[in-house]
Amino acid sequence: MNSIIIGQYIPGNGFFYKLDPRTKIIAIFFLMISVFMLQTIVQLLIAIGIAVVILLIGRISLFKVVRGLKPIFILLVFTFIFQIALNTEGTVLSTATMHFNLYSIISAVLIFVLWRILLRFGKFKILLFLAFAFALYFNFRYITFQPDFYFFQLTIYEKGVEMSVFVVLRLLIIITLTTVLTLTTKPTDLTQGLERLMHPLKKIGFNSEDFALIISISLRYIPTIFDEAQKIMAAQASRGADFSEGKLKDKLKQIISLLVPMFIIAFMRSEELADAMESRNFVPGEKRTRINILRFSIIDIYTGLFTLACFAGTILVKVML
């Protein structure tokens, strides 16, 4: 659980911590639009260079961001595979018949087992996975003993490779950018920033203050709820509910034994919170003052200029090329 970094604030005091959350939100918004406007891999590589520079300026360790990518690694892999397999534009790069016969399936199983075993010792899990994928590819391609149970043509097109690299790079940049935002901005600051930015929407009936309040309360309670879930699991495990093993039917019961107390405690907590807020004279919809008032400073201007430059640059590139 501790490895989930997306959406997690880590205290620090680098450049991005001093930035006004509004600036960060707007900057990220425009940078993302820029990323979507890029059209070639070279442009994306330049953008990645810029993203790395941003990380360096903020003294955010690359390692932390890469670790944060772990949960979405699967998503990246799938995107990659789908793009390669389904895109049929451009020239043919390679075409090969994939053979599924007794021998290739047995050796595929062996490769799988080997992969799982190596996974236990290895530290480079991502590399290991890539090696596994390649091994499977060559396995089905070159073990050609007849008879095949099944075979198909795997044709890889130039455009497919290009697009898959493109999409993955794009996702990488976007995730890095959002990670910078969430890593360096307290959830409360983030919601306050959002609230201020969406304030004009009040004219069309959208109350940004209520919205911000809802978001900040939810964020505040996420760790609490994790904590409670662990306590409930411990209490039920003491009564023999084994969440890791057991048949499906038992599992269902055990999940219920977790969910019911979760809901009940959540309701209890929310009532307590409502009482506590009311007894401190909170009235929904009333105007409130702030402890921390957001203020722009010189670094916000720099950041704004930088963002503007990036954005204008991308538009220029798009128009010119």
Partner: peptide, 28 residues
């Protein structure tokens, strides 16, 4: 070794007291 936690809210979940008490033995 049976462990009883401080807050009963963390473990009660069934519709009836009887079913709730039976949860442990049934698990075993």
């Amino acid at each position: 070794v049976g462990l009883v936690f401080q807050f009963p809210e963390y473990q009660l979940f069934e519709e009836t007291v009887e079913k709730d008490i039976m949860f442990g033995p049934l698990n075993f």
